[in-house]
Design a protein around this nucleic acid. Structure first.
Lengths: 262, 262
DNA sequence: GAGTGGTCTAGACCACAAC
DNA sequence: TTGTGGTCTAGACCACTCG
């Protein structure tokens, strides 16, 4: 309907080998990168792009789907296609499980969110005994059953992280760890009270595209990967006392690590 | 042509609200997850799927594009659509820059690849002086110009990582660090010889979808995110002496970190 | 040459959002 | 009611791979 401000977008190169829908994607991407469409701004509608480039609607949709898969734009049914705003990221410090933080009685998530001025929430709480996966079992020294604690974290109403902690039953059964709310300082504080003084953690980090379930749970936009972090906690006797499997929306996090040069 | 073994794929649910192309994607995903199509196996051709599900070709292609964006399959022009084999992953230990490794004279990449039985290569070498980006500049204490060392790493012929090191010119100019081959132990060994004894590193990790240039440089399949790692090296005087900006194919790496509980 | 995926057209009908 | 994106059809021609 509205005339497209042609100045914002170039025109196609008919001599180019590059497919038309890729050229259109390139033009849009460049316009976004150069700030000609700001964060949150609406792109020209599909029908405007059809007219501007003189192509069929499928070609335009193909171009837009590229930008979606790159995480640059997201579409809203009945409204339009918008430049994805970059959500604020949460930095995870490598000392986030240091004892001095735990002793303050709040969980790391709550403390950091408060400090950043965000509203933290935890939901989807589930605590149950179950048979461990082979991977979790191997990490924990092959217990037959484990206590699983699942929860989802949200910031200002947006889900950012989904985590499950697994603990051997001989450690966790009939302790505050098996309660929905384990008390101040979280399960690490309880583990230390139970005599499992923590010695160190091992973290394992992957990045990949989310499964359909993860997309749903974290309400992920198209083109947003997840960071998959598996942390194992060891006590001073060298025993693995907890495995925490965490899936994070990658656009919500920066992970920080401190490495001594030794 | 060949009859499709219908047993491998269910049929559509006409009463479902779920879009047809999503249902087809679900069926294929389930078949892959359950191993009915092994890694590297060829999926039924588009025309076979068209016939099996009695839909148009665009609908089938829409379904396949979902699986591609999830990184589950990749298409090969003229051959077919194949289940993506999981490439072997390289684990990066958090002590990979420990001095004891450096003193053995080989770079971390070469040592690890040899140990894993892979054939390592380094190409795209470029060493030049340039003006730093604002981000790099801020990390290095605002030098006017820096030495940039760019290189790409390959394993068994496959590009897996693209890295740029930035060093302040007052440290690196007219030293072996400015040479294409800085010598045994790499630039960290040279830095220490120049009096910049390394104290610690800070690493910053993000995950995101790759830019078109990154897709090209790392020859990334559709649906493979990248891990973006920025490491800053500090000497014992507390000065930032190097920033290394690394982009890794996420399906080729697992990052390991060791965290003391303190 | 036969089969495959890659690109593109020109329509159609639907569901959702905003006025 | 109008405009938006979401889904789907039924074709077409092309480029690539393999025998």
């Amino acid at each position: 309907m509205a005339a497209l401000a042609s100045g914002l977008l170039g025109s196609l190169d008919p001599t180019s080998d590059r497919a038309v829908f890729r050229q259109i994607a390139d033009h849009l991407r460049e316009a976004i990168d150069k700030g000609r469409f700001a964060e949150g701004a609406k792109l020209p509608s599909e029908s405007e792009l059809v007219e501007h480039f003189s192509v069929s609607r499928m070609t335009v949709r193909n171009a837009l789907s590229i930008l979606q898969s790159e995480g640059l734009v997201s579409s809203e049914h009945g409204k339009g296609v918008f430049v994805r705003p970059r959500p604020p990221v949460r930095r995870l410090a490598s000392d986030r499980f240091a004892r001095r933080h735990r002793e303050q009685g709040k969980s790391a998530f709550i403390v950091e969110a408060d400090a950043a001025g965000s509203r933290p929430e935890v939901d989807n709480l589930e605590v149950k005994e179950e048979r461990p996966s082979t991977d979790v079992s191997a990490r924990l020294g092959a217990p037959r059953r484990v206590l699983a604690r699942r929860r989802r974290y949200l910031l200002d109403g947006r889900p950012v992280e989904f985590a499950t902690s697994y603990l051997p039953l001989d450690i966790a059964r009939d302790t505050p760890i098996a309660q929905p709310n384990p008390g101040p300082g979280g399960i690490y504080a309880r583990l230390e009270e139970l005599g499992h003084t923590l010695d160190h953690f091992e973290e394992e980090i992957r990045a990949r595209m989310p499964s359909p379930l993860e997309i749903k749970t974290l309400q992920l936009a198209t083109g947003v990967p997840v960071i998959h972090l598996i942390r194992t906690a060891f006590d001073t006797k060298g025993r693995a006392v907890e495995v925490c499997d965490t899936v994070m929306a990658a656009d919500a996090y920066i992970l920080n690590y401190h490495l001594p040069a030794k």
